[in-house]
Design a protein around this nucleic acid. Structure first.
Lengths: 132, 132
DNA sequence: GTGCCTACTTACCAATGGAGAGTTACCCCG
DNA sequence: CGGGGTAACTCTCCATTGGTAAGTAGGCAC
């Protein structure tokens, strides 16, 4: 059986992986940042201060209501923003970054800065690669 | 039709979104980083220098072969790493970060540092939220 | 009442990612 | 000369994720 060794490797890998995950906070954060809307919500709120649900929906054009609600909930759960319901005529909901949230935004802004600096390099690398 | 206004908003949003996307490099990079394995490949290569395919597979335990190959290819295409085939007995393939790749890793390392600093806060926020 | 507004929730469906087996290409051992 | 072993994929199927669109609550304006 030619794939047996590979399967064994895979299994060993999984044990090591689980052990690694348990103690590795950066891995958990990466999973959170893998959600592409997170960074955009952080950026929007850092820019505007407090925003309403509908404002966010307009700003993050292209996001579905479902995903917006979902990411806002997980960010609230993680203590990165506060959700405040005001029982006005039609109920309005305001979202604001916590200090923790804005500190994460500070880091993400550096990633954004890198992108703006180097995206041309990436683009030309792509063209060269595609040309081959 | 109650959703008509929402649908219209959605459509307007999409136009604005496309226009925004065209000129916004940070958005393109975010899409790249959304692929959670990218950061891990960068970290592994930054740590070890050059690595072979099988070494990477072992280091990034939990990654499927399919995704590893896929992310390596896109990173190569974007000029972040170099792929070098050596025609040894069974062919071996070495991957090395380019200067561009290691500069991105530098940024990502700050994200990792943030995670290590603040993950406890996030964890306690989660517990508090779940307790309600 | 009828309709409309905000902020969701739900149902369905297409696309993405993972698991695992199969493939290629080569050499060495018997 | 044929079987076996190995590295790096590649393919196929299935589960999870995300998007789309429609529905809900509940108060107010008409």
């Amino acid at each position: 059986m030619p794939t047996m060794t590979a399967a064994q490797q895979r299994e060993q890998a999984k044990v090591a992986y689980d052990a690694f995950l348990a103690g590795c906070p950066s891995r958990q954060l990466l999973d959170r940042l893998s959600d592409k809307w997170v960074a955009l919500v952080l950026a929007a709120l850092a820019e505007q201060g407090t925003m309403r649900y509908s404002e966010l929906a307009r700003r993050l054009a292209g996001v579905s209501q479902k995903m917006l609600t979902q990411t806002l909930r997980t960010l609230e759960r993680d203590g990165l923003l506060i959700r405040e319901v005001t029982p006005t005529v039609p109920v309005t909901v305001d979202y604001t970054l916590t200090p923790l949230g804005s500190s994460l935004d500070g880091v993400m802004r550096q990633v954004k800065a890198w992108a703006e600096l180097h995206m041309d390099d990436v683009r030309s690398a792509r063209e060269e690669y595609d040309a081959r």
